[in-house]
Every structure is written in C-alpha cells, then in structure tokens.
Design a protein around this nucleic acid. Sequence first.
DNA 1: CAGAAACTGGACGCAGCGTCTCATTTGGTT
DNA 2: AACCAAATGAGACGCTGCGTCCAGTTTCTG
Lengths: 194, 194
Amino acid sequence: MLSLAGEDRFGSISMEGVAARAGVSKQTLYRTWPSTGAILFDALLDRSLSESGEVVVPASGELAADLESFVAATIAELTDPTHEPLLRAVTADIQTDEALAAQFHDRLLMPQLSAISDRLRRGSIDDPDAAAELLLGPIFHRWLLRTRAFEPGWASAHVQRVLRATATRAEPSAEIASKKRGIPGNTTISTRNL
Amino acid sequence: MLSLAGEDRFGSISMEGVAARAGVSKQTLYRTWPSTGAILFDALLDRSLSESGEVVVPASGELAADLESFVAATIAELTDPTHEPLLRAVTADIQTDEALAAQFHDRLLMPQLSAISDRLRRGSIDDPDAAAELLLGPIFHRWLLRTRAFEPGWASAHVQRVLRATATRAEPSAEIASKKRGIPGNTTISTRNL
DNA sequence: CAGAAACTGGACGCAGCGTCTCATTTGGTT
DNA sequence: AACCAAATGAGACGCTGCGTCCAGTTTCTG
C-alpha cells in the first residue's frame, strides 16, 4: 500500500521524483495523496507508529522520573537525524495546509497530549491538560523556532518547574494506573486505525 | 530600498511574481535576496518593527498583570489576519532554511525572549530565562501546531501557572525598573540596527 | 473467462526557477 | 556639459515540476 521507500531529501521532494523512485505513475500517486505534504505525513506516521502504534508514557515509577524520561525520549526523537528532516518538512507544510494540519493534530499531537495528560491526571495533577501543554510547549518552542539546543540536565529542571506550576495534591506512591487497566505498566493510547 | 508593497498570498509568492508586481527585474531581486523566504522575512521585520523598532513588555503595574497583557498582545498579533499568513510563511521556511532561521532567531525571537526575561528578572523571578520559555512555549505550541485556539481567560490562568512554577521571592510592589532606567514605563529592547 | 477497475507511460500546456546577455538609465567626477 | 562606471529593466535560455489527460496494459473479481 504505502510504498514509501527511504527518501532522502524531504525538504524538496516532488510528485514526479517520488513517482519515478517508487516505479509508479504520477496518476497513481495523485489517486492517493493530494500533495507531497500528504505523502510526507503518511511516511512520518509510518515511522512514528510502525512498531508500537501508540504513544507511550512511562508510568512505572515516580511521576517526575516518568515525565523526565518521556521528555528525554521526545527530545531524542526530535533531534534524531533520521526523523528530524521529515518532521520539519511536515511541520512546515502544516503552516499553510489546513487539511494536513487537522490530520497531524488528530493522529499525532492529540494522542501525545492525551497520553501525557492521562499520566499527569493519575499522578494527581490538577488541570493535567494545562500541565501537558506546559511540558511540551517549551520543547517545541526550542525545536520549531530553533532558539537553542537541548542542553543536558534541562529536561529534569523543566519537569520540576512544570510540576511546581500545577501540582497540588501529593502523589500517591502506588499508582492508580494499575487498578484502572489490566496492564500495570505504561499509559498507552493507540493511534492506529483512527 | 525595500519596495515590498502589500503582497497578498504569502504562501505562494514567486520571484517572478514579486518582480512583476514591484516593477523590478528579477536580476535586481536576486541581488538583494537569495530566496522568497528572505523577502518574506524582511517584510515581516518591517511590519513588526516599523513603528516602535523594539519589543515592549509592560512594566508599570503588578507582574502578573503585565505578563498577562503581554501574552494577550502576543496572541493578538499571532492571530491577526494581517500578520498571521506572513508569520506562518516565514516559520515554515525556517524549518528548512538554516540561514533564515538564524536571522529569525537573532532579530525577532531573542529580543522578545530577552525583553520578557528582563521583566521577569526585575519582578524577582528566579531563572527568568526558563520562565520566559515557559510563558512563550505553550503559546507557540498552540499556534504553530494548531492544537487549539486561544480561549478567553486562558492567558490569565497560564500566567498564574508560569509564575507558580518559577516564583520564589515575593515581588516588591514598587518596581526596581523605575530606578534602573530613566523611563519608569516599559521594558524595551531595541532590535533595530542589529 | 469476461468485464471492471486500477495501473503505467508519456504527452500537454503552464508556471517558476536561476542564469545569462544587452541596451538603457542613473549618478558621480572632472 | 560630457563622460564613464555601476546599477537596472527587459527578457530569452534550458530546465524542473505541476496537475490533467489519454491511450494501452495489467490485475482483480464475480
């Protein structure tokens, strides 16, 4: 179905180029995707979800530690040379393509935000949605606007600040997560087949 | 010098189009700007700085109120139909154009971050840089990734959270700002002629 | 096995790219 | 006022890519 072999320069792909490299006619491409942006988005979706098919937020230990490792994982993905160019190409397209933006929102961003939000809620955080935004916002601010790199140790301090901003009750050491769902492990939200 | 009359569709301008509309030859355009992105950036710079030439953070009243009005102003600018398309076009280009990203960073983002940071520092906030990031991050997260609109009242709650995350000492009601500089008014950092 | 659906290959007119030449302004210098 | 050099306007150049269209295959499916 998705014959998106390893493309190289995502910033400047063309319908004709993809067609040629995929050994497929332009007609067929247009039958499935309206734009190169849509192709890139599907490729991104494939890469982001292929193994797991879901967003995973660790929910085994202490809240702060879980958030920290999630932040670290997010940063790792954003700066991974394999993913970064593709991600940037898609976010660039999103700025001018409303339909693509909606797809991106529904299938990548919301699942991510929801997963964090859920973890925060079960960590006894008030207004977990706001906290999730507070957590992710600065990360993407740095990444999208290229204000500065992610220095080591920042993730930890950042998580501390976010928790200070929104923590109200003390977190119970035994998580409610394990009761709410069969798996006592991580908070997962599937984004496959939406 | 900059004969950038009111262009309309920033997402899809072309060198040829600009040249024609400006009554100028392509050659002349290329002499000044290497890409359409660079043209858009200069146009953005013109619009953002023409009247004031500086980033202004109110510094007259209470810290929270000042930040709130700054946030409100930022949101207003981001959603202003006059500015939004141009801003989006430029941020899109930034994703793939390193040189442009550096310009954007130096002449627009840093001045903004510095201005807020300064205001926060004089408001007795520890780690004002982190606080500034915490303040702006979620705003741009919403705007760039189009996760959701800015509902009324959000700015206020957001500022409260940011202050809770980073406030340590009590803010003196009389600002140090008025002593530090002649003008007792706003925190300004010039971005002209950098 | 026949009809329908999907596919390839390529042509089409068009827009824009970035480079180039060349004739014409324009401005500064004596 | 006359001159020269730099900057400019006009547009041609080959090229790439767009999005659509049209045969002529192949492949699915009943």
